[in-house]
Amino acid sequence: MTGRGAAGRATAGRREGASQSRTGWRDRYNAWLMHHRLSAADSMNRVLDNPVSSAMTWLVIGIALALPTGLNVALDNVSQLSASWDSPAQISLFLQDGISEDRARQLREEVAAREDVAQTLFVSRDEALEEFRALSGFADVLASLEHNPLPHLILVSPVGSSPQSAAVALRAELAGYPDVAQAVLDMEWLQRLNSLMELSRRLVLAVGGLLVVGVVLILGNTIRLAIESRRDEIVIVKLVGGSNAFVRRPFLYTGLWYGVGGGLFAALLVAASLWLLRQPISELATLYQSEFRLRGLGVMGGLNLIILGGLLGLAGSWLAVARHLVEIQPR
């Protein structure tokens, strides 16, 4: 107290002048800033004063946000995986039954001469049987067959970086050759996977949208209860000249803290589940000699989740505040 001396008196004097007409922009800005700081701290204290119920709110919001986020991360990983399989598309030409090996080799030359074909490989029916016998373990069964059931096979690789549609067109043309019984594009399952993924993405989006609405409503209700429990205080603040913005501010911060906490919980939940999956997936990848590594949320992803949570918190509290604060008028 003794240290305040002259400096204290000087500021007091200046403040006195300012208080006569509290309209200066600087004063108003400072006041506004200070109340933001007070509200933010006060709301934070209130949230932390009830750790159990606050943690419950955070967890509910965290789960609601983690679900679509986690699914999205999973889809990202699958599409990363399928992208690495995209390039070596291959068309298998199974030839008609009665065709001689010479005719088959001739057909292979014809196909190889095409501009849109990069490479061809001929597998005669005898070679195919041999290979099948060696690999399948059905040697005894095969030996008992009277004749070779397998057709001649030509494996066709489309030129290097041709897009999927080109490979599809090539398959259709080759299927039209009279000597070809069946032309199979090995990529087909990949296409199916891709359209399945597209479908999943939309589903995740829809579910995510619903959960986001849910989060806003949950937060709105939490804030409504907070407003209700502080009704007397709101009335008194309005009686002594608190503006709507002033009354609103602490509740907006409460919503913000719940939302930010929820976003943080969501990021932790996603990170934890990925961490649990990391070990088995890397073992699986080693087994398949793949370079695949599980991709996580990343720092930016986590940050975005927290920001999203904060925005939803603000949205929810705006909803509650807009509906319930004006109703509370001094009586």
């Binding site: 204290g8 500021t11 007091a12 403040r15 208080s19 509290r22 004063d27 108003r28 400072n30 006041a31 506004w32 200070m34 109340h35 007070l38 008194i236 603040v237 002594v240 000249g241 608190g242 503006s243 002033f246």
Partner: peptide, 16 residues
């Protein structure tokens, strides 16, 4: 202090 907080006085002035 409530009316002073609402009016936006700084902390030292509020205390005084």
């Amino acid at each position: 202090a409530l009316p002073l907080i609402i009016a936006g006085y700084d902390q030292r002035e509020v205390g005084r």
